[in-house]
């Protein structure tokens, strides 16, 4: 279990989900004659002019607004994603420039499948907690790609979440402790220069997602001497609707604890944003003294778990930016055909 030398917390946060939705049954109609179970109801789809950088900028702006600081006060801008628009050229510098950050900062991109965003969060905790920076911005953002017809196509979605990390005394939610757990588990990956990832079907379950999430969460609970009942809310990485609900049950969390941060049924898997976006949705409604358990997951594989306590500063500052539910409510359903065009899946010759 880890704690920085100086206590830190979330001093601002922002979530973003694109406007377009593709219903799972629309995919099912194209590939599976409409029969069988669906992993989510719908997934979010980015617009023509959106990518990881643009979504990261929007989420980042909201985090700064809630944090009540200027971009110029940032010491680091870190963007975690598996869909950076450039293979070589940082998203972080574009996002930093757009947020008005200064030049004397750290800016870089993180990659750890769906855990890249929380990896950035742990690094931000370390930077601020060591005293090397006052404020660091950790962003998870993805426009996840999936091969047409693949099981991943139902869930590969788009979204972004930005967490501003600062000193605990300015926090909307203190981060009490964190745990990181990794193992070389090849459940899902995309080779360099390939357009779509591959996944290990049932291998993505027990040895991958469930093992890492349980390991990190259990270690954190034990380290803090807490039990699931000690937390108001729990948020887990959500690659579909079922996995987070199942792991919550395995660990002893209730459906009520899980519900506010469970977004995947409505918007699919936002990859690097997924767990952080769930946290944002929880912070949109949490009260002072509420406690949150957050566990991310990234294929390849690993989990970061965090324990947070909401402070009395949250209520006044969350209204400075739109709640995640505003973006979830803002939706326009699109057809599979329009989705195929919008995501560049039509063969143009």
């Amino acid at each position: 279990m880890r704690r920085p030398v100086n206590p830190v917390g979330i001093t601002g946060y922002g979530g973003y989900v694109p406007r377009y939705r593709l219903a799972a049954h629309a995919i099912h109609d194209v590939w599976a004659d409409g029969a069988g179970a669906l992993p989510v109801d719908a997934k979010s789809v980015p617009g023509f002019d959106e990518d990881t950088i643009t979504m990261a900028i929007e989420a980042g702006r909201y985090a700064l607004r809630r944090g009540g600081i200027d971009g110029a006060a940032l010491g680091a801008v870190w963007v975690g994603s598996e869909s950076h628009p450039y293979s070589v050229k940082p998203s972080g510098t574009v996002v930093a420039e757009a947020l008005g950050a200064g030049r004397w900062i750290s800016a870089a991109d993180w990659e750890f499948a769906c855990k890249a965003g929380s990896e950035a969060l742990s690094a931000a905790m370390a930077l601020v907690g060591s005293g090397m920076a006052q404020h660091a911005l950790a962003i998870g953002a993805d426009t996840a790609q999936a091969r047409p017809g693949d099981a991943l196509e139902y869930t590969a979605a788009a979204g972004a979440a930005a967490l501003l990390v600062g000193p605990a005394e300015a926090a909307l939610a203190r981060i009490d402790a964190t745990v990181s757990y990794v193992s070389d588990t090849p459940d899902f990956f995309r080779r360099a220069d390939r357009p779509y990832p591959v996944h290990g079907h049932r291998f993505t379950g027990e040895p991958a997602y469930f093992h890492q999430v349980r390991s990190a969460t259990t270690a954190l609970l034990e380290g803090l001497g807490t039990t699931p009942a000690d937390y108001t809310y729990a948020v887990f990485h959500q690659p579909n609707a079922r996995f987070p609900q199942l792991v919550a049950r395995q660990l002893g969390f209730s459906a009520a604890q899980l519900a506010p941060g469970l977004l995947s049924p409505q918007i699919g898997n936002t990859y690097s944003a997924a767990a952080l976006l769930g946290l944002c949705a929880v912070l949109d409604i949490a009260q002072p003294g509420d406690t949150v358990l957050l566990t991310s997951y990234g294929s390849g594989a690993g989990s970061d778990a965090y324990a947070l306590t909401v402070t009395d500063q949250l209520a006044a500052r969350r209204a400075a930016a739109p709640p995640v539910q505003a973006f979830i409510a803002r939706q326009q359903a699109i057809s599979y055909a329009l989705y195929a065009r919008q995501r560049g899946k039509l063969v143009m010759g």
Partner: peptide, 24 residues
């Protein structure tokens, strides 16, 4: 802030302002 255009498949992505109706 949105991607205004990409200068070809090997080229720069140009980002810039766009506007939308208020979300919230």
């Amino acid at each position: 802030t949105r991607a205004l255009r990409a200068l070809g498949p090997d080229g720069l992505i140009v980002y810039g302002y766009a506007f939308r109706p208020l979300v919230w």
